[in-house]
Design a protein around this nucleic acid. Sequence first.
DNA 1: TTGTGTTTTACGACCTCC
DNA 2: GGAGGTCGTAAAACACAA
Length: 288
Amino acid sequence: MDSGRFFFNHPSSCHGSNVMLFGSGDSVFRGPRSAMNMEETLKRRPFYTSQEDLFNEEYYDEQSPEKKRRLSPEQWLNFIYNWEIKVRLLEKSFEEENKLEPERKSQLASKLGLQPRQVAVWFQNRRARWKTKQLERDYDHLKSAYDSLLSEYDSIRKDNDKLKNEVIFLTEKVQAKELAGAPISGQKSEPLQAEAPHVKAEDRQSTGSGGSAVVDVEEGPHLVDSGDSYFLNATTYPAGCVGPVDGVHSEEDDGSDDGRSYFSDVLAAAEGQNNGEGDQTLGWWVWS
DNA sequence: TTGTGTTTTACGACCTCC
DNA sequence: GGAGGTCGTAAAACACAA
């Protein structure tokens, strides 16, 4: 619960405070500490309360606001209980459905002894808080995905460098052979693979990063027939490094008010790109 | 003690939907 | 046009660091 801090702070921290409480039914209001007069405060912040209020020494009773009255420990406990029940009920209701239909609003208001307007405002603010948290979670997810892709990128790059070195080595080998003795026309040369040093067959066939091939098509002989670089191929290149930023949707845009991420469609698309390529880069994503 | 950041309630402006 | 939504912000209070 967001307001949990109100319940567990030590009451001694408010000794000497000039805060006073104004009770109305089971609502307790924080009294004016500033220049704002009592009426204004009561009108403006009728819902507000805190644990410190609960342990404060005095408050004004609804029936006789001019008289101070000391709350017994039992009364305070009752107040804590009632207030906590209210917030818990609102939270529970919010978890079930974060939008508030008129009927539910009226029910909650009468159940909690609040104005329907207060319930509506509470839900509005609660949605705003939820959205802020959701954005933070989305940011964390995206950052994690970015870091993961960056790491994968580095790995693929290293593989690529390794393969390029292999190409250079083999090219030099072939050239040396040709210089040593001109090959008979039509003679089949030895498989290059057999002479490649320090490179295992698995390395050439698979890098463990979804496949890899020599990128550079301009220098040296090609070991791949297609001539296309897998590395630069958009269908294979891990998605999500840049795209999602441009594709961010607001809550209103995608109607993602159902607990899903604001970036869900973008990430789902990115994940779809990876599917079928044996790459589960975005497998971390879970609906929150 | 003071300044700053955070949390919560509340409101007004504006937008969307029926 | 009204109801209800989001967004931005004010106000109050607290926590915490300097």
